Amino acid sequence: MVHSMTAFARQAHDDDWGSLQIELRSVNQRYLEPHFRLPESLRDLEPLFREALRTRLARGKVECSLRFDPARDDGGLAVSRERLAELARALAEVRDAVPDAPMPDALALLDHPGVLESQGPDLDTIKAAAVALFQATLDDLIAGRAREGDKLAGLIRERLAAVNGQVAEVRRLMPQILARQRALLLERLESVKAELDPQRLEAELTLIAQKADVDEELDRLATHVAEVERQLTQKGPVGRRLDFLMQELNREANTLSSKSVVASTTRCAVELKVLIEQMREQIQNIE
Rank of each mutant, 00 (worst) to 15 (best):
R220F: 00
V170C: 10
T206C: 09
E216M: 13
L160R: 00
V214Q: 03
A209I: 07
E190S: 14
R172V: 10
I177A: 10
L189H: 06
D197C: 10
K193Q: 15
L196I: 15
A194H: 00
L205R: 12
Q176Y: 04
L218F: 11
L189C: 05
R220W: 06
Q166G: 04
A168Y: 06
I177N: 03
L196F: 05
L207S: 10
I177F: 02
I208P: 03
D219I: 14
Q176R: 15
T206F: 07
L184K: 09
L189F: 01
R171N: 04
V192E: 09
S191F: 00
R188Y: 05
E217W: 07
D213C: 12
Q199L: 07
D215C: 08
A168I: 01
R182N: 06
E204N: 12
R188P: 06
L173W: 12
E195D: 14
L205N: 03
E202G: 10
N164H: 06
V167M: 01
Q176V: 14
E217S: 13
E204T: 07
A209V: 13
P175Y: 02
Q199S: 02
D213V: 06
L160S: 00
L160E: 02
M174N: 07
R182G: 03
L173K: 09
A212Q: 01
E217R: 01
L178H: 10
L205V: 14
A168T: 10
R200V: 13
P198R: 03
E195I: 13
L201V: 11
G165K: 02
T206Y: 01
D215H: 15
A161W: 00
K193D: 11
L221A: 00
R182E: 03
L184F: 00
E187M: 08
A179E: 14
L218M: 12
R220C: 05
L218Y: 04
R171V: 08
R171A: 08
A212F: 05
L218G: 05
Q166I: 03
L205K: 06
R171M: 07
R182F: 00
E217F: 09
Q176G: 15
P175N: 00
D213W: 07
A209E: 10
E190D: 15
D219M: 13
E158A: 14
D219G: 08
A162N: 13
R182M: 05
A212Y: 04
R172P: 11
L205Q: 13
L207G: 05
E216P: 13
E187D: 15
E204C: 11
E158C: 09
I208M: 12
L178K: 05
